[in-house]
Structure formats: C-alpha cells, structure tokens
C-alpha cells in the first residue's frame, strides 16, 4: 500500500521537479476525498500539477478554462431541444467527470463560481429541477491567480471552505531550475505519463484514510487548536466544524502518506497551513483572500500559541 503511494508521488515528482512537499500535500488532499485549490502566479506549474495528478490516478478528466464570460451552463450542461424526437435532451457539461480541472477559477464571475458549490459538497448537480449524481470519485482541482492580479474575482468564503486544501507552489530552487533548463520539457513528460493505480485501489486507499487512528489526546490537541481560532482576538472568525473535520481528515491522509496508521500532532501541524490558511480571517482584514505573508503569520500565531501537550 505504502509502495503505491510512494509510486504516485514519484511519478508526479518526475514532472514537477523539486516540489515534494507540495506534491505530497496534493496527493494527501485527494486521498482525503477533498478538492484542491492551487494558488500561484502564472507559469509556476499549477496546471501541470493538476494534470499530473489526474493522469497518475488514472481518472477520466475534463479541463475547463474559466473566463470572465463563462456561464454556469457551460460547466453543468443544458437541456437542448431535439427537433427529430421533439423532446429536450440533456447534454452533460464537462462537470460530469472524475477529475475536473478548473483552471484559473477566479477569472470567472461569482455566478459561475457558485455553479460548483453543490457539485463540490454534495457530489451532484441539479439542473432544471433534476438532480443528477456525479461520477465517483469526483475531484475538483482548481487553480487560481493571486488576487492582486488584474481581472480576478475573489472566491467567496463559502466556496473556499469547500476546498479541503489550498496550496501554493512557489519558485523552484536553483538546482531544480537548472535541472529544468537541461531536462526534457515537462509537457512532453506529462504526455508520456501512465496511470500508477486504478480505481479500486484508489478507493481502497481512501478507505484506509478513515482507518487511521486518532487518540483522545490528539483530538484534544486538535480541538484546542480549533477553539483557539474561535476565541483568540487576532482571528475575526474561527474555523467551522466542517473546517475542523476537514483538518482531521487531511491529517489522517497525511499520516497514511507517511506510512503510519495513527495520527501524530506533527501531522496536524504539517497540514495546518494548507487546510486552515484559507478558512480563517485575521482581524486586521488580511483575510481568507488576503496576502500570503499575513495568512502565514496568522497560522504561525495559531501554531505557536497552542500547546501540543494538554494543559497540566
């Protein structure tokens, strides 16, 4: 089992050089049944990572480029009148897939962004009064540009909360960059990529995540962390129960990824920035969509203020 996970990470790592931690986080997110938001400047490899993941997992995927004139129907699908049979026929949109690559999600209007709300949380879509289930599994991997860029619409909190994780990639380091220059174009490698696991195995892995053991002491630590976001003055609002559950699940997946069947405080801490960062807002208004450093310092504040060990 462990080998399989390692293989996934290695495969992606071959395309996305020098980003082990980010790749691990992304895989963690998928194992934890969560949607992933990748935020960074253009050209940092967001789309590459998303495509890699879809390929490696051997899932059917669709890519939607979000633009400012995109409409909900473009994603969800629409009923079209068929003249021959004199009836409406529903044409499925790109959302009916296993992995949806929502590229540059914040370039579109809030109206279209919201089309994803139901799909992401309940894994179904309701069009013209009819509810249709989405395929299983269903992942949304979205990429977005930092908000300071021109022509972006910030995602509403409700939408952000539906992403289990938000990760950033950042510039590659020197060695990696040089390797990039010398090596094969990542795009070519991407096309050569083969699926590492199949659907049943993925389901098996996802089931294992739920098996990871979290003791009372650990849950106590997690609860104190969550409580801190709700009571401390530097947070203008705290983590929701959904956010707290997501955190626990992400931690479990991270533990599994590290070959453990029990959760350690370290797991909780290591997924903290990507799980908590987009769900809380600091008082001084560098909120969920605020600048990166601000979010970091808020998460750091949380990390350093809550004692790992229960109070004596």
């Amino acid at each position: 089992m462990n080998l399989m996970i390692q293989q996934i990470i290695n495969s992606v790592g071959q395309v996305l050089l020098g980003k082990e931690v980010e790749v691990k986080l992304a895989v963690t997110c998928l194992l934890a049944h969560g949607h992933l938001l990748i935020e960074d400047l253009p050209g940092m490899g967001k789309t590459t990572l998303a495509q890699c993941l879809a390929r490696v997992l051997g899932l059917e995927y669709e890519r939607v480029q979000f633009t400012s004139d995109l409409l909900p129907a473009d994603i969800l699908g629409a009923a079209i009148f068929n003249r021959e049979s004199s009836s409406f026929k529903f044409l499925k949109g790109p959302i009916f897939t296993q992995v949806l690559l929502a590229d540059e999600i914040n370039r579109t209007t809030p109206k279209t962004q919201s089309a994803l709300l139901e799909a992401m949380e309940e894994r179904q879509v309701t069009i013209e009064g009819q509810t249709r289930p989405l395929p299983e599994p269903f992942f949304v991997i979205a990429t977005q540009n930092p908000l300071s860029q021109a022509g972006t619409y910030p995602l509403p909190e409700s939408q952000l909360d539906r992403f289990l994780m938000r990760i950033t990639l950042g510039y590659p380091n020197r060695a990696t960059e040089q390797q990039l220059f010398k090596g094969v174009d990542p795009r070519k490698r991407l096309q050569q990529m083969e699926p590492v696991i199949d659907l049943p195995k993925l389901a098996q892995l996802q089931a294992l995540v739920d098996e990871v053991n979290a003791t009372d002491q650990l849950l106590d630590y997690l609860q104190r962390l969550v409580d801190f976001t709700r009571s401390d003055e530097s947070f203008s609002y705290g983590l929701s129960p959904r956010g707290a559950m997501a955190w626990l699940r992400a931690g479990k997946a991270w533990a599994l990824l590290n070959g453990r069947e029990h959760l350690l405080p370290d797991d909780i801490q290591q997924v903290m920035p990507s799980v908590v960062g987009h769900r809380v807002r600091g008082v001084h208004s560098h909120g969920v969509n605020g600048k990166l450093e601000k979010r970091r310092s808020l998460v750091d504040h949380l990390l350093t203020s809550v004692d790992v060990l229960a109070a004596s």
Binding site: L264, P265, D266, Q269, L303, T304, S305, V306, D307, V308
Partner: peptide
C-alpha cells in the same frame, strides 16, 4: 520546549 513544538520537532 516551545508550546507549539511537537515532541518529534
């Protein structure tokens, strides 16, 4: 040990 520091760290 710092408060936020895990035992492993």
């Amino acid at each position: 040990r710092q408060p936020g520091e895990t035992l492993l760290a």
